[in-house]
């Protein structure tokens, strides 16, 4: 009997139906068997992963859980057994569209670590952004009349681990692309990145917290443009593990920081036309937490408050840590009382 784990993509881009994923992992003697039965049939929407991509997710997870300097050779791959039925979202066949298949692949990766969690609690991280966070735009250069397009994939919060917080704004399993320098992008396109920041209070709380998500705002001051989002997590953020809580979900917002009627929430898979002056704010999720937030070292909570990564209110609401506003000090007695009473009443944040 193996560990069964389920996951899903929030949105396939065409229908409102979630994309269900499932895996059962069995360690049988010298082989590790990944059974994806229970995952959805392939979609008309471009969220289908190929068999090779799914196999790569299995190999990655296994490689990451084993000794760090173990060579990856045929002898390693031989022990990976996989059942991913042809015609499913984890083994797409012609003519299924696959451009967004990485959304499925990275979510499979995330699901695999959750499946391993009971057996290897010290090794697996909590959920990460588990979406590619692809942002593209196209624009016509007024001076030359040439069409230019730009593509990049953004970082998010990493999942918390058994002994450490998830790093803030960093790439995820199987993805390690750098961010394009703002000065490089602005030198080649008539647009501006108006903000590149961590998202405060976006972490999944836990004994160890998830990493903060990241926000990148694309502003098109003078020219019309098209903007493409191929991403996910617009319904649910990365889950916590062993009592850790969920990280903030992703947001895709047209004209943020504007009065409500002008500010529009976009979906995670769309192409939109922008008029001069528009801004798209791409906000990636925070990582999931690990362990109960009430067990978090109050000094670690204070450090996040001092750094402005979480607010004083959030320290109290999520972690039960009381910090005095004026002195920025922990009120130990109050903290202890609040944590005790909430644990007794099983009142989770």
């Amino acid at each position: 009997m193996g560990d069964i784990e389920k996951s899903f993509l929030d949105f396939d881009g065409f229908s409102d139906d979630v994309v269900n994923l499932q895996v059962e992992i069995t360690v049988d003697g010298e082989n590790v068997f990944f059974d994806f039965d229970g995952s959805d049939k392939q979609r008309r929407a471009p969220v289908n992963s190929t068999k090779a991509m799914t196999f790569a997710a299995c190999a990655y997870a296994l490689r990451a859980l084993m000794a760090p300097d173990m060579p990856v050779n045929e002898g390693f791959y031989r022990h990976i057994k996989m059942n991913a039925k042809a015609g499913t979202v984890v083994h797409a066949i012609h003519p299924a569209p696959v451009v967004g298949g990485w959304e499925t692949q990275v979510r499979v990766n995330d699901m695999l670590f959750r499946a391993f969690a009971d057996g290897l609690p010290k090794k697996v991280p909590s959920s990460t952004k588990a979406m590619m966070a692809q942002a593209g735009f196209g624009i016509i250069d007024r001076e030359t009349g040439e069409y230019h397009c730009n593509y990049e994939a953004l970082a998010g919060g990493y999942g918390a681990r058994a002994n450490s917080d998830g790093p803030d704004a960093v790439q995820q399993h199987g993805q390690n692309t750098e961010n394009a320098p703002v000065e490089e992008v602005e030198s080649h396109f008539p647009m501006r990145v108006s903000r590149l920041s961590l998202i405060e209070n976006s972490e999944g709380p836990g004994k160890y917290r998830g990493g903060l998500g990241m926000r990148r705002d694309y502003q098109f001051p003078d020219d019309p443009a098209t903007f493409t989002i191929l991403s996910d997590r617009d319904i649910q953020g990365p889950q916590g593990i062993f009592g850790g809580l969920e990280g903030r979900k992703a947001y895709y917002i047209l004209n943020p920081d504007c009065p409500n009627e002008q500010s529009i929430e976009l979906s995670s898979k769309c192409v939109i036309d922008l008029k001069p002056g528009d801004t798209v704010s791409f906000q990636t999720p925070g990582g999931g937490g690990y362990g109960s937030p009430f067990e978090r070292d109050p000094r670690a909570v204070l450090k996040d408050v001092i750094g402005g990564k979480i607010s004083i209110d959030r320290a109290l609401d999520m972690y039960g840590v009381v910090i005095t506003k004026s002195t920025r000090e922990i009120d130990s007695d109050c903290t202890q009382k609040i944590r005790q009473s909430r644990t007794k009443t099983r009142r989770l944040p």
């Binding site: 490689r63 859980l65 450490s164 790093p167 704004a169 390690n176 750098e178 920041s197 990241m214």
Partner: peptide, 24 residues
């Protein structure tokens, strides 16, 4: 304005591909 986290975000990459316990 808007770029206070430049040093925190850095290049947004993980220093090691298979290390699940990595730190920035």
């Amino acid at each position: 304005q808007g770029f206070r986290d430049m040093l925190e975000i850095a290049r947004q990459i993980r220093p090691s591909l298979y290390d699940l316990q990595f730190e920035k």
